[in-house]
């Protein structure tokens, strides 16, 4: 339990007449795995897109503290600077890899800004001068580290599109980690994984946390959420309905009614509700 890393204050996101996120405030602590859960359409991915700069929030602020006490407003940064200056990395719900490039190339693209700085505006590197060679070597070493951590080292020279689904998920995490983030945002990392892959994912996320990177995670798989998160935020209809440790969330009346519905027959999230109920 450390100090606050991410502070979201009164975040509101409207699309025309639809309010996807309504005056949401929450904190994520440094060194924690913070999970954002909620029924489908609760606004989880919208919150993620605001934090990672893909949407400009209608109102409210998102601040990140790289060192205790310091604060940087993420909602004031241009989109690409969120990863570069804000040091917030993300993965996508539908995997977005560079399919025609090899696994290793994917990880080198992630280190673009550092490598580009070493090329001397590209001119020196074209002529084979300067420190680019050393920078590339270091980048490959870092890529190898994450390839080993995600168990992809044997596939390093294969095109990303040729990997099986679970490996693509891991590669996307490895690629995000190569940007050297302080906060990694994962949008449903366990979706479509089998139980064994899911377990491996848990281990990977715990390793990332141990390496000093905090995590923010959207997840439907309660097995993953309850086991590894330190802190859970529950959203429903764009509002926060609960905020606390896994144990507190399990016993929260509002959460249970949001998932199970209040005497409502129409229940789109039955499997999750069952899992949640079974976990009690």
């Amino acid at each position: 339990m450390g100090d606050t890393l991410l502070t979201v204050t009164e975040l509101t996101m409207r699309f025309g007449g639809l309010t996807a996120v309504n005056a949401l405030s929450f904190n994520a602590k440094r060194g924690d795995i913070t999970a954002v859960i909620g029924p489908n359409g609760a606004g989880k991915t919208t919150v993620f897109n605001c934090i990672t700069g893909f949407y400009k929030p209608t109102s409210g602020s998102i601040a990140i503290a790289h060192t205790p006490g310091a604060s940087m407003l993420l909602n004031k940064l241009p989109g690409h600077a969120i990863a570069k200056k804000g040091r917030v990395a993300r993965t996508f719900q539908n995997i977005r890899l560079f399919g025609g490039m090899t696994v290793l190339e994917n990880l080198l693209v992630a280190q673009h800004n550092e490598l580009q700085a070493a090329t001397g505006f590209g001119v020196l590197a074209i002529l084979g001068l300067g420190k680019y060679r050393a920078a590339e070597k270091a980048a490959i070493e870092r890529a190898k580290y994450w390839l080993a951590a995600t168990n992809l080292i044997d596939r390093a020279d294969d095109p990303a599109a040729s990997l099986p689904y679970g490996a693509q998920r891991r590669l996307e995490i490895a690629r995000a980690m190569c940007t050297d983030p302080v906060l990694l945002c994962l949008d449903e990392p366990a979706a479509g994984l089998n139980p064994r892959e899911s377990q491996a994912l848990n281990d990977l996320l715990l390793k990332i946390r141990a390496d000093g990177c905090s995590l923010l995670l959207i997840e439907h798989d309660m097995g993953v959420v309850m086991k590894i998160s330190d802190h859970i935020i529950v959203l429903d209809h764009g509002k926060k309905i609960a905020d606390g440790t896994p144990l507190e969330i399990r016993n929260d009346i509002a959460v249970i009614s949001a998932y199970l519905g209040e005497g409502d027959d129409d229940d789109p999230d039955a499997p999750i509700a069952e899992t949640l109920a079974a976990a009690e």
Binding site: T52, H80, K84, A89, F92, R96, G99, M101, V109
Partner: peptide
């Protein structure tokens, strides 16, 4: 490599801090 990554997926490029 950034050019080719751009051809493959613009949104992913942006999430990796590429201008």
């Amino acid at each position: 490599r950034a050019w080719e990554a751009l051809r493959e997926d613009e949104i992913a490029c942006r999430s990796l801090g590429i201008n």
